[in-house]
């Protein structure tokens, strides 16, 4: 405590020009629009706030049941329910405007044109620090192929958004691919300033008594501690494939989990499902990172990034 206060380690990082107090932010869809958790932790202590996936028009989402707990994880098929961009500006933005933390807007589209239109509209909002592009959505004009599962489509959508967007662009990758490094290279080449990964892994669970899928949508996205080793592996692969900074996501619950991602080369991390289990999880993780740096005698967290010994 005594002189460690004089030399408090620096947790600050910068991703695609977005300056963050520390490398910890919520994962899209697990933190609402920030407001929902304002009573439980200090939003200004976070590196950034990442909002629920936004689309041009409001989206209804899927029928219920939408969630199912599984071993060390959960499946969700929320169906990207959201208020749409007009609703966001009217109801959600006023709160975020007052918070002194960079706001990153996660968004998606059903067509290339929709992605472009949302990108253009978001460009005009000064309070937005950057956007995260969710490319794990089906392209309804091309037989429903998921943009992010094909390197050509992924390149196309990122390049299209790049044309309209005047903000830092983070491309969020789906893990439901054969080789994530190929997609990572494609989005980097298309102009992404950073990459975040991973989104949820497609899964399924069955109620053995009713013999019905536990989700109305049949399948859903698996998240939580169960996916962390897969996520760490994929971040490791992506970091080696690209030069842009990478944000690691997947099953982070405590500081040690976040450290794994940083050590393999992520410049920051996002915390998702853990927020549900403990609304103060991110505050504990940030405190835990600082404690680790003090214990290890590291002055700047950036020294840790990519420090994996092989």
């Amino acid at each position: 405590m005594m002189d460690s206060r004089k030399k408090r380690p620096s947790l600050a990082v910068e991703i695609a020009g977005i300056k963050m107090k520390n490398p910890v932010m919520p994962a899209s869809g697990t933190f609402g629009y920030g407001e929902e958790y304002a009573g439980y932790l200090d939003l200004e202590g976070l590196g950034a706030i990442v909002t629920k996936g936004l689309s041009l028009k409001p989206k209804a989402g899927n029928p219920t049941p939408r969630i199912a707990e599984t071993t060390s994880g959960m499946l969700n098929a929320i169906g990207l329910q959201n208020v749409g961009i007009d609703g966001f500006i009217e109801y959600k933005l006023p709160f975020l405007r007052e918070v002194n933390t960079p706001v990153i807007i996660n968004f998606f589209g059903n067509t290339l044109e929709e992605y472009g239109e949302v990108a253009q509209r978001l460009s005009d909002i000064p309070e937005i620090a950057g956007v995260e592009l969710n490319i794990s959505c089906p392209n309804v004009k091309q037989g429903g192929i998921v943009f992010g599962t094909d390197p050509v489509c992924a390149h196309e959508v990122v390049a299209h958004v790049r044309k309209y967007l005047k903000k830092p662009l983070i491309a969020k990758l789906t893990p439901n691919v054969t080789d994530i490094a190929v997609v990572a290279r494609a989005v980097e080449e298309a102009g992404a300033d950073a990459i975040s990964c991973i989104n949820t892994i497609t899964g399924m669970a069955v109620d053995v008594r009713t013999r019905r899928p536990r989700l109305a949508n049949r399948t859903g996205g698996l998240s939580g501690p169960a996916i962390r080793p897969i996520a760490v592996r994929m971040v490791h692969q992506v970091v080696q494939a690209v030069k842009v900074p990478v944000i690691g996501i997947g099953g982070i619950v405590e500081a040690a989990d976040a450290l794994e991602f940083l050590i393999v080369g992520a410049s920051a991390v996002q915390v998702g499902t853990a927020n549900f289990v403990d609304p103060s999880a991110m505050a504990d993780i940030i405190a835990g990172l600082e404690k680790f740096l003090v214990e290890e005698g590291i002055e700047d967290i950036r020294e840790l990034i990519g420090s994996l010994e092989l």
Partner: peptide
């Protein structure tokens, strides 16, 4: 069925 209890996950609609 609820995951968060605070209106963030939209699982309980």
């Amino acid at each position: 069925l609820m995951a968060c209890g605070v209106g963030a996950c939209l699982g309980c609609v």
